[in-house]
Design a binder for these strands. Structure first.
Lengths: 140, 140
DNA sequence: ATGGATGCAAAGTGTTTGCAGCCAG
DNA sequence: CTGGCTGCAAACACTTTGCATCCAT
């Protein structure tokens, strides 16, 4: 977790045990947890942790460009420490959120930009459907 | 607005003045208003209209597949009566939301589907940036 | 006539804020 | 030492719900 502390420092964020813990949870998962999930995951090891601190920390990380916030449907916000901008696939059956690392869309988006004279600074792309795991499971 | 009443009837929704009014607002704009904006737009002509009714009606329309709900950033939900699935461009400067009617992305999304073995049922695609109007205005 | 819709107020949810005490730098 | 962080509780904004009344069918 040395590395994480370095990253925080580089962003001029004070390194506190809470911040390290929260960032670590996000850094080590691809499950895109909500603030509440993070809070509950840390309660055991950090009994004094408060939900407000989780929110404040996520906000700080967001502003420092260390995490992305995902807004998927009505649910509460989910967070992703993978900063490479990428589309997400939301399985409507198991509710998992998959990262999609592909360049399949890149060309099309570039074309769009010139077609529309709109300067695209960031994207939020969500695909909703059924993941391959659930498709197989549903057959039974 | 005969036509709108027909559409509601076809969806087995009772046709009330409130529903017609709310649907009409959405049907005749591309501004993607929030529930609150719709409510305020109708207060003058429908003094007894309540915000709860707007929400309930939007919910009914959503369930009847007559409107889409957009979740853009932190703001409250915005609504779109244009049911043809399409990406949205959000101008970070003037905060307007533009509909994007193009097939530029279609092929790429189809490819994605086969690449990933994920069955895509719907998409939510938002581009954030600066619209051409604001780009020009910013030059001055 | 009757089941669903309205509209008020109250409750709910996720998130944010105020502030006193605390700790990293 | 000092400004920023924590953590509690209270406040907040948006949305939903309960319920008595009303109205479209």
């Amino acid at each position: 977790m040395e590395r994480l502390a370095e990253i925080l420092k580089a962003k001029k964020l004070k390194v506190t045990p809470q911040r390290l813990a929260i960032y670590k949870v996000l850094y080590e998962t691809t499950a895109h947890p909500t603030a509440d999930v993070i809070y509950n995951a840390l309660k055991a090891t950090h009994p004094t942790m408060s939900l407000a601190t989780v929110y404040k920390t996520l906000d700080a990380l967001k502003k420092a460009d260390l995490v992305h916030e995902l807004s998927i449907g009505d649910e509460s916000a989910r967070y992703d420490a993978n900063m490479k901008s990428h589309p997400h696939m939301v399985c409507l059956h198991c509710n998992k959120v998959y990262d999609l690392h592909t360049s399949t869309l890149d060309d099309a988006i570039n074309n769009l930009q010139s077609e529309t004279d709109f300067e695209i600074l960031s994207t939020k792309i969500y695909f909703y459907g059924i993941c391959s795991g659930c498709k197989t499971a549903t057959l039974s």
